[in-house]
Write a protein that binds this DNA or RNA. Structure first.
Length: 970
RNA sequence: GAGGAGAUGCCGGAGUGGUCAAACGGGGCAGACUCAAAAUCUGUUGGCUUCAGCCUACGGGGGUUCGAAUCCUCCUCUCCUCACCA
C-alpha cells in the first residue's frame, strides 16, 4: 500500500475552502446564528504551540458541526498584539516592535491555516492596529464621561536603574529582573483606574445566569469577595497612654467547690454576687464536678468554665502544673481559690497567688480586688476625630483590646504621636522595601502609633497599632483587634503582649474539643459572654442586635464590602494603547476630543531608559485641546487587557472606521455562544470583559448583559514525560512538526481523543501513531470502496451514532465521539451501502475535515462535505440494547440453562427472576420442556428476587439479572 | 486557612442502580505474512476451571437495596485555584 500523501490533500482542501470562501459569512436573518470563539493569541515569535492547536481544534470541531447543522456560524480569529514581549524584543535585539508583531502574526496565520481551522479570515482583528485601538481610546473617553475612569495615587514597583515601573512578573525576590543587584522600590504614582467596583454587585449576581465551569465562577465570586458586615465608628484620642487594661486577664482558679455550693446544694449568694460584680472577664477554672457549678452559676453567661475530670489526687503540685499547661495559663495570671491545706501548699509551692477560703467572703473580696485591678473606664476625649472600621463580627465588639491601621494608610500621620514618630518611621521604611513585601507568609509585625481609640460599645480606650497585615485598600484600612476570636489578631496580640479578652464561648460548655483554650483564637460562632446586656445571646442574634444598638447611637451602620478593587490600567510602557489625555498647566488633565482619535503611537522611539514615550518630545508635546496652549501627552499606555476586553464585539464589524461597531451587526452575532480558552484567565480577562459589556450596555451600545454565554476551558497539554513542555527541558513538541509527520487530521484526532478536552493530558508518540493508524484504515477502506448492503446491526448502530455523536459534539465530549466512531467503523468494515459510507464521512468531518473532503470527492459526491448537512437520525431503526426479552424467549432461555446444568439426581428446580419478569414466566411450560429430557423432575418453583417468602437455600436469588434468571437445583 | 476537582484493570481513560470481569485506545502475549524485522492482520490479556460456572476485583471502612464501580456516610490520599479581605 502506497503512503498516503496527507500534505497535498490538506493543501488541496485548504486552498479550495479559501478560494470558494466557504467560511466567509455575513448576517442572515433567515438563519439562526451561532458564535464560536477561541481566545485570540498573543502573537509571540515562537509561533503556535501544541496548546494553541488543541484550543483551535476544540473550537473548530464545534464550529464545523454547527455549520453542518445549518447554523450561520461566526468563527473568527485575531491577535492580541500589544504587549510586553514585543517591547522586550525591541529592547534586547533592537527590533521594531511593530515589525516583530507583524512578522509573528504572519507566521501565526500561516500555521493556523495549516491546521485547517474554519476561520473567517476576512474578519481578522489586530489590536496593535490604530484602527482598532482607536476604539480602546473611545471607550476610555466614554468611561471618563461617566465618571468610571479616574486618577489616583497608587503604589508601583520602581527600578531606579531602569528608571521605570516594572510589572509584578519582572520583580524577582525584590530585585529588578534586569538589574539583579538593584532593590525594587515601592513608589506612589498618579495612575488611571477604571471603576470596576461600580459593577461589583452585578458582576457577582450575573454569574448565576451563565453556563460557565463552576470552578471559574467560584474563582470570580471569591475574587469579587462580597461580604456583609458592620461599619463601626471609633473615636480617636491621641496622647498619653493610660493605665492598661491588661490586668483583668486574671483567672480565678476555684478548687474548693463547697465554697460555692454546700453539701445541701445551697449557693453561697454573697460570693456569687461578688464574682458577678467583677468587671469584664471572669474565668472560673474548676476541677470539681460540673453539676455543682451549674447550681452556682445557673446558666453560663459571663463565665467561661473550664472543667477537668474530678480527680482525688488533685492537690499535688504536679496536678496543678498539668492543669495550667492544659489550659495554657501562666501562673502569674492565676488567682487560686482553695481551702484545703495541702492544696494551698501545693499552689504556693508553684508560686501561685492563693486565696485561702475559710468562709469569710470579705477577705476574699479584698484579696481579689488587690490582685485584679478594676477596669479603668476611659473618658474619651471629645476630639471629634472618628475612624470607621469594617467588621463581619460585630458580636465580638466587647472583646476589642486594640486597633490596627494599615501601614500604607493615607491618613496614617494623623495617628502618630511625637513620641512614637521615630519608631513608626523606622517601621515604615522596612515595610516599603519590596523584598519585605514579597516574603511569603511573612510574620505579623507592627508598631504602636501612640494614639487610642474609644470602643463605642463600652467606652474603653484601646491602643492603635500600625500593622503589616492590614490592607489599606480594603474596608477602611483599619481593623478592630479581637484577639480571642480572630486568628490574626491573636497572633499579633501574643507577639506584642496585648491582652486577650474572651467574649464568645462555645454553645455547649461540656464540649472540650471546640472551645477557647487561650492557646489559639476561638473563631466559631457561639454564645456571648462578658458583653453587658448581650451576654448569653448567640453570635448570630448578637450580630444584628449589636449593630442595631450601635446604629441607634449613631456609631454603626450595616455595609457590604467587596474584595474587588478598581482596575489600574496605567502602564509605563511603550507597546500599548496610548491614554488619550493631554496635561495642561491651566486646564489640568484634558481628554483628547473624539474627532482627534486615534492618538497613535510614535514609530521612531528610543528604547533604553524608561518609557520611551517619555523621552520622545516630538510626540509628547502638543496643544491643549481646551485652551490651545502648551500641552503634554499622557505618556502612560493602557494595560493590554483593555484590548482583549471587547475584541469579540469587533469581529461582528471589524472594518468599521466610523463607529466602534455597527450596533445591529453586533446585536445579530453577539453574545458569544461558546467561548473556549485556558482557565488561567478566570479573574482577569474574563472579568474585565464582563465589566466592559456591562458598561457598553449602559451607554446604549449593546443590548445584552454578558459577553460569553457558555465557557469552556481546555486542559493543559504536557510533554510525554508528564512535565510542562518547555524549551529548557527540551521536551517541546511543535504542532507544525507533528502535522507534517502524521498529518493534520491525525494530529487533531489525537488531541481530542486522549482525554476529555477539559482535562490535562500528556503528549504521546504512541498515541498519535494510533490516531494515524485509524485514519489510514479509514482512508484505505474508502480507497477501494464499492457500495454494498447494510446489515440490520449497522443501520441501528449508524443511527445511534448520528444521534450520540451529534450530542457529543455539542457538549465537548469529543473523546466519546472518537470512541463511537471507532466502534461504528468496525461495523462499517464488514460491509455497507454507499449511503452509510457517506453518512460516516459526515460524522468524522468535524474532526478530520481534510480526509473527509478527499474521501467525499473520491466516492463521487459533489460539493463540499464541510458545508453538507448533518445526517438525520432514524430513531425507529435503533435497536434498544436494553430491550426486554419477550416472555417466550425468556422461558426458552431458562429451559436451556436448566438443561445445561441438570444433574442425575435433581428432583426440584428453583428459578429466580427479576420482579418485573415474574409475570412473563410460564411455569408449566418450563416443567414440561425439561421433563422431555428428564422425567423425574417433580417441581419447578419460580420466585421474584425480592420475594421475601422465597425458598433460596443457596442464595442464588442475588445472581439473577434481567433476562438472565438464576437457578438452583435440589 | 478558604474554595473547587478527583481516586476504575499493566497504563491512559469510559462507565452513574441490574446484559459490568468493566467500552475505546495504548502496551503485553500468541499466531499469520516475511529469510528476518518494521508495518499490517487475527486471537488473547484478573484467578480457578467440567467454557457451565465459581472466586477475587472499580482508594479504605460502614450503610441502603433482592442487587452497588454507580446511592448515603465516615476516613485516607492526590491535584488545582485564591490566599493575612477584618
Amino acid at each position: 500500500m502506497d503512503e498516503i500523501d496527507f500534505v497535498s490533500i490538506e493543501k488541496k482542501w485548504q486552498k479550495t475552502w479559501e478560494e470558494k470562501r466557504v467560511f466567509e459569512i455575513s448576517e442572515d436573518s433567515g438563519k439562526e446564528k451561532f458564535y464560536v470563539l477561541e481566545m485570540f493569541p498573543y502573537p509571540s515569535g515562537a509561533g503556535l504551540h501544541m496548546g494553541h492547536a488543541l484550543n483551535y481544534t476544540i473550537g473548530d470541531i464545534l464550529a464545523r458541526f454547527k455549520i453542518m447543522k445549518g447554523f450561520n456560524v461566526l468563527h473568527p480569529m485575531g491577535f492580541d498584539a500589544l504587549g510586553l514581549p514585543a517591547e522586550n524584543a525591541a529592547i534586547k535585539a533592537g527590533v521594531d516592535p511593530e515589525k516583530y508583531t507583524n512578522d509573528a502574526i504572519e507566521n501565526f496565520v500561516k500555521q493556523q491555516r495549516a491546521l485547517g481551522v474554519s476561520y473567517d479570515w476576512s474578519r481578522m482583528v489586530n489590536t496593535a492596529n490604530s484602527e482598532y485601538y482607536k476604539w480602546d481610546q473611545w471607550i476610555f473617553l466614554k468611561m471618563l464621561e461617566k465618571g468610571l475612569a479616574y486618577q489616583k495615587e497608587a503604589s508601583v514597583n520602581w527600578c531606579p536603574k531602569c528608571d521605570t515601573v516594572l510589572a509584578n512578573e519582572q520583580v524577582n525576590e525584590g530585585k529588578c529582573w534586569r538589574h539583579e543587584d538593584t532593590d525594587v522600590e515601592v513608589r506612589k504614582l498618579r495612575q488611571w483606574f477604571f471603576r470596576t467596583t461600580e459593577y461589583a454587585e452585578e458582576l457577582l449576581n450575573d454569574l448565576e445566569r451563565i453556563d460557565w465551569p463552576e470552578r471559574t465562577k467560584t474563582m470570580q465570586r471569591n475574587w469579587i469577595g462580597r461580604s456583609e458586615g458592620t461599619e463601626i465608628s471609633f473615636e480617636i484620642s491621641g496622647g498619653e497612654p493610660q493605665i492598661s487594661q491588661i490586668s483583668t486577664d486574671k483567672v480565678i482558679l476555684v478548687d474548693a467547690v463547697h465554697c460555692l455550693v454546700d453539701e445541701k446544694g445551697n449557693v453561697n449568694q454573697e460570693l456569687k454576687n461578688y464574682l458577678d460584680s467583677l468587671p469584664n472577664r471572669k474565668i472560673v477554672l474548676t476541677m470539681a464536678p460540673k453539676s455543682k457549678f451549674d447550681l452556682f452559676f445557673g446558666k453560663v453567661k459571663d463565665y467561661e468554665i473550664f472543667t477537668t475530670e474530678f480527680n482525688p489526687k488533685k492537690s499535688s503540685p504536679k496536678y496543678y502544673e498539668k492543669v495550667l499547661e492544659e489550659f495554657n495559663l501562666k501562673k502569674e495570671n492565676v488567682v487560686y481559690f482553695e481551702h484545703s491545706e495541702d492544696g494551698v501548699d501545693s499552689a504556693k509551692s508553684l508560686g501561685i497567688d492563693v486565696v485561702p477560703y475559710n468562709g469569710d467572703v470579705k477577705k476574699v473580696k479584698e484579696f481579689i480586688d488587690s490582685k485584679i485591678k478594676p477596669q479603668i473606664s476611659a473618658n474619651a476625649r471629645e476630639s471629634g476625630n472618628v475612624w470607621k472600621v469594617f467588621t463581619t463580627r460585630p458580636d465580638t465588639i466587647f472583646g476589642v483590646t486594640f486597633m490596627v491601621v494599615a501601614a500604607g494608610h493615607d491618613k496614617l500621620d494623623e495617628l502618630v504621636t511625637n513620641e512614637q514618630r521615630l519608631a513608626v518611621d523606622e517601621y515604615l521604611r522596612k515595610m516599603n522595601s519590596v523584598s519585605e513585601k514579597d516574603i511569603e507568609r511573612r510574620e505579623k509585625e507592627g508598631v504602636f502609633s501612640g494614639s487610642y481609640a474609644v470602643n463605642p460599645a463600652n467606652g474603653e480606650r484601646v491602643p492603635i497599632w500600625i500593622g503589616n497585615f492590614v490592607l489599606a485598600d480594603y474596608g477602611s484600612g483599619m481593623v478592630m483587634g479581637v484577639p480571642a476570636h480572630d486568628k490574626r489578631d491573636f497572633e499579633f496580640a501574643k507577639k506584642y503582649g496585648i491582652s486577650v479578652r474572651q467574649v464568645v464561648t462555645n454553645k455547649d460548655p461540656l464540649d472540650f474539643k471546640n472551645r477557647y483554650t487561650g492557646k489559639e483564637a476561638f473563631v466559631d460562632d457561639g454564645v456571648l459572654m462578658a458583653s453587658k446586656q448581650f451576654s448569653g445571646m448567640s453570635s448570630l442574634e448578637a450580630k444584628t442586635d449589636i449593630t442595631n444598638w450601635l446604629a441607634g447611637k449613631g456609631n454603626a451602620k450595616r455595609v457590604v464590602n467587596f474584595k474587588l478593587r478598581d482596575w489600574g490600567v496605567s502602564r509605563q510602557r511603550y507597546w500599548g494603547t496610548p491614554i488619550p489625555i493631554v496635561y495642561c498647566d491651566g486646564c489640568g488633565a484634558v481628554p483628547v476630543p473624539e474627532k482627534d482619535l486615534p492618538v497613535v503611537l510614535p514609530k521612531e522611539v528610543k528604547f533604553g531608559k524608561g518609557n520611551p514615550l517619555e523621552t520622545n518630545s516630538e510626540w509628547l508635546n502638543c496643544k491643549c485641546p481646551k485652551c490651545g496652549g502648551k500641552g503634554r501627552r499622557e505618556s502612560d499606555t493602557m494595560d493590554t487587557f483593555v484590548n482583549s476586553s471587547w475584541y469579540f464585539l469587533r469581529y461582528a464589524d471589524p472594518k468599521n472606521s466610523k463607529k466602534i461597531f455597527d450596533f445591529d451587526k453586533v446585536k445579530y452575532w453577539n453574545p458569544v455562544d461558546v467561548y473556549i480558552g485556558g482557565a488561567e484567565h478566570a479573574c482577569m480577562h474574563l472579568l474585565y470583559s464582563r465589566f466592559y459589556v456591562k458598561f457598553l450596555r449602559d451607554i446604549g451600545a449593546l443590548d445584552f448583559d454578558e459577553p460569553f454565554l457558555k465557557l469552556f476551558h481546555q486542559g493543559m497539554l504536557h510533554a510525554e514525560d508528564g512535565r510542562k513542555m518547555s524549551k529548557s527541558l527540551g521536551n517541546v513538541v511543535e504542532p507544525i512538526e507533528t502535522m507534517k509527520k502524521y498529518g493534520v487530521d491525525a494530529t487533531r484526532w489525537f488531541l481530542i481523543s486522549v482525554a476529555s478536552p477539559d482535562k490535562d493530558f500528556d503528549w504521546s508518540e504512541k498515541g498519535i501513531l494510533g490516531a494515524t493508524r485509524f485514519i489510514k484504515k479509514v482512508f484505505e477502506f474508502y480507497d477501494s470502496f464499492v457500495g454494498g448492503k447494510d446489515s440490520e446491526e449497522l443501520v441501528s448502530k449508524l443511527n445511534l451514532c448520528i444521534k450520540n455523536i451529534g450530542n457529543y459534539y455539542d457538549s465537548f465530549e469529543y473523546r466519546k465521539a472518537t470512541i463511537e466512531i471507532r466502534e461504528l467503523f468496525g461495523e462499517l468494515e464488514k460491509g455497507c451501502s454507499k449511503d452509510s459510507g457517506l453518512k460516516f464521512l459526515k460524522l468524522i468531518a468535524p474532526i478530520c475535515p481534510h480526509v473527509a473532503e478527499e474521501l467525499w470527492e473520491k466516492i463521487g459526491e459533489k460539493g463540499l462535505i464541510s458545508v453538507a448537512s448533518w445526517p438525520k437520525v432514524d430513531e425507529k431503526v435503533i435497536k434498544n440494547k436494553g430491550q426486554k426479552i419477550s416472555g417466550e424467549g425468556l422461558n426458552e432461555k431458562i429451559v436451556e440453562r436448566i438443561k445445561g446444568i441438570l444433574k442425575s439426581d435433581t428432583k426440584k428446580v428453583y428459578v429466580y427472576v427479576m420482579p418485573f419478569e415474574i409475570g412473563q414466566i410460564d411455569k408449566e411450560k418450563i416443567l414440561r420442556d425439561i421433563r422431555d429430557s428428564k422425567l423425574d423432575i417433580r417441581e419447578v418453583a419460580v420466585f421474584a428476587v425480592n420475594d421475601s417468602t422465597k425458598i433460596d437455600p443457596a442464595g442464588r436469588a442475588n445472581k439473577a439479572k434481567p433476562g438472565m434468571a438464576s437457578i438452583y437445583l435440589e
